[in-house]
Computed example of a mutant assay.
Amino acid sequence: MKPDFLDMVPWYSGTSADLFKTAFDLMVSVTLFVGRFDMRMMQAAMKSTTDETRNDDVLYDYFNEREDLWFDFVADTGDGGNSSYTVARLLAQPSIQTVIGGSMHTLPRGNLLVIGGDLAYPNPSSFTYERRFFGPFEYAMQPPRWYKAEHIAVDKPEVPPGVSKMKKYDGPQCFIIPGNHDWFDGLHTFMRYICHKSWLGGWFLPQKKSYFALQLPKGWWIFGLDLALHGDIDVYQFKFFAELCRNKVHFSVPCLSFCFELDFSITSVSCFSTRSCLITSTM
């Protein structure tokens, strides 16, 4: 049966009700949330430990025991269903072949999928997340048969049956940072669908918060930062990453300063000589 994908958002239409609603949501978000209520501070208040280096709500260190690791990166996913499905289908393939330097190479599917925000355009809601984001990914790679789409995960990670701990799970996993469009409702939809669901199609979602640190093999790290609508991280997020770098990542002081003074104006994947990868979101 042909999927009932949504068309692309009519960005250049002056009569689109969705775009008028997006403008209204943005105005409300800036007026009510910026400087008044910050979901990131609420997340920090609900953390399970005061020791930032052992905070498994945002620190995922079980990847570092692998011999090697492949990861895929994609962003700005939730526009037209056909285009989103095309990319998701490529990500779902066990491997793809491509020509690099004149020779054919086989690239395996990433053990890890990192998504860089703006999950569903033009504004976040249950409808746009389900139809523009989850739908195409579920058609690309289906979740387990026993998984119920309406299930709300209250104690993540909900490891699949037969798996005793996360480092034993060998299937593809996904981590996501919110973009500015995901913040138009104060991050409510993102928290419900990303932080309280366990599967994006066939990708397992262990993520509990809107930002995270992933410890990869051979000294590599990925930092996923949540910049909200401010274009900056909040003080609690800064404290977590600063203490993590000081105690576990072993940055030099100049590199730590550079890490938090990057220009966050574009989606970027920045690899430093200290073998850390910083992923930020579109503003």
Rank of each mutant, 00 (worst) to 15 (best):
F33C: 13
S281L: 00
L262I: 12
D118F: 04
M42Q: 07
F184V: 01
F241H: 12
K2V: 06
N123A: 13
F71L: 08
W220R: 09
T53N: 05
V253R: 15
Y169N: 08
S48P: 00
F5R: 04
L205E: 11
V163D: 09
D76S: 12
Q207I: 09
V253S: 13
E261H: 15
A92S: 14
Y12W: 11
G171T: 02
L214S: 04
R246I: 01
M27R: 06
T31E: 03
G224L: 05
D155V: 11
D7F: 02
F37N: 07
A120C: 14
T98G: 02
A23Q: 11
G102Y: 08
S268C: 09
V9P: 04
K148Y: 04
P94Q: 04
F204L: 12
K248H: 06
L91C: 13
L244A: 01
D79Q: 11
R109H: 05
L91N: 08
S164E: 15
S95Y: 15
Q237C: 03
D232C: 03
F190E: 04
D263Y: 07
M46F: 08
A45G: 00
F175V: 03
E138V: 07
C174R: 08
A17G: 00
M8A: 10
K239P: 00
M39H: 15
R145V: 10
I96W: 06
D38G: 05
G102C: 04
V114P: 00
H196Y: 02
F37E: 01
L6Y: 02
S198Q: 12
F240P: 02
P136T: 06
F264G: 02
S16Q: 06
C195D: 10
F71T: 04
V99C: 11
S210C: 07
F24S: 05
